[in-house]
Simulated assay, not measured.
Amino acid sequence: MKFFIDTANLGHIREAHELGILDGVTTNPSLMAKEGISGHENVIRHYKAICDITDGDVSAEVISTTFEGMLQEAEELVKIDEQIVVKIPMIKDGVKAIKYLSGQGVRTNCTLVFSPGQALLAAKAGATYVSPFIGRLDDVSTDGMVLIDDIRLIYDNYDFKTQILAASVRHPMHIIACAKSGADVVTSSLSAITALLKHPLTDIGLAQFLADYERAAATTNKPNA
């Protein structure tokens, strides 16, 4: 499974890259605003800065909700860097745009997916990635992981090449559940990823190893009577 980080924070992206597990980045206008990035030219420059940090795919989201507007934005976004994947919303004109762009060799990420039917349409249109939002489903008392299971089954049934990019991932157990369900990619915050490092028995074991080493070293260095 690939690990993407869902942020516009360059520091977090660098940290994930340096950890050695980063396969790509997803971001959106809300995450840009959170980092104080505003203005068209600044957003474009920020996307380029992200591409310069990671070697993987970088999802850059369109703002328009019309077919023509999405194509115009996509044309500009793909000029930033060859790593750019154009993020398109799951709406009627979005599906049309995905179909057109995939025919032009432009890679796309269909976002805001909440049902198997939406995921099926995205795959039929040729999306490179489909982004089911599991955390937001959990927020409305619906098991988001069932959606991942359903999409995996449908895609395997018909050998669709669209990759399942599990989004709106809130905690490390979401990541483990996505891995078990066969998601191709998971995108989450840095904190959810680094939480996978932690286990109390690891801390206890390491503390014991270090204490034993210190005792052994003290015995070895003790002067003879």
Rank of each mutant, 00 (worst) to 15 (best):
V62P: 00
S189L: 07
C178R: 03
G126F: 04
A97S: 09
L165M: 11
M32P: 03
A166G: 06
Y155K: 09
T27L: 04
E18Y: 08
T220M: 12
I88H: 11
I37F: 08
F67M: 11
N28R: 15
A119P: 10
A49D: 05
I164G: 00
E15C: 09
A225I: 08
Y100M: 12
D139R: 13
V113P: 03
K48L: 10
D184W: 01
R170I: 02
V146P: 13
N221S: 15
S191T: 09
T111H: 07
S181W: 14
Q72Y: 13
E41W: 06
G205C: 09
D55L: 06
I50M: 15
N42L: 05
K87W: 10
N109R: 10
P116A: 00
D93S: 08
Q208R: 09
Q163S: 02
H46S: 01
K34E: 14
G182P: 11
K87H: 15
N221R: 14
Q163G: 00
L137D: 07
R215Y: 09
S64L: 05
R152M: 03
E73C: 02
S59T: 02
E75G: 09
T142R: 15
D23H: 06
S30C: 07
K180H: 12
P116D: 01
E35K: 00
H199M: 04
I84R: 05
S168N: 11
A127C: 00
V106C: 07
L19M: 12
I44W: 05
K48S: 09
N42H: 13
N224I: 14
G103E: 12
P116Y: 04
N157G: 05
H46G: 01
P89N: 08
M145R: 10
L22T: 03
H12D: 15
G117S: 07
I204V: 14
D138N: 11
L165E: 00
N109F: 11
E75D: 15
E76T: 03
A125N: 04
A177M: 13
D23N: 05
S188P: 10
M173D: 04
S115Y: 08
E82P: 04
A218S: 13
N157P: 08
L190R: 06
Y213T: 09
N109Y: 14
A119E: 07
V185E: 00
A60M: 05
A97F: 10
R136I: 01
S188C: 07
A216H: 13
S181F: 11
A60L: 01
L153F: 03
M173Q: 10
K34D: 14
D150G: 08
P116K: 01
Q104E: 03
T65C: 06
P200R: 02
P116S: 01
T65M: 06
V85H: 03
L165Y: 07
K124V: 12
A192I: 01
D138K: 07
E18L: 13
Q163D: 02
N28K: 14
A179C: 07
G39M: 03
S141Y: 08
D55T: 08
K124S: 11
T128K: 04
G24S: 04
V186I: 07
P89M: 14
K180R: 10
A74P: 12
P132M: 00
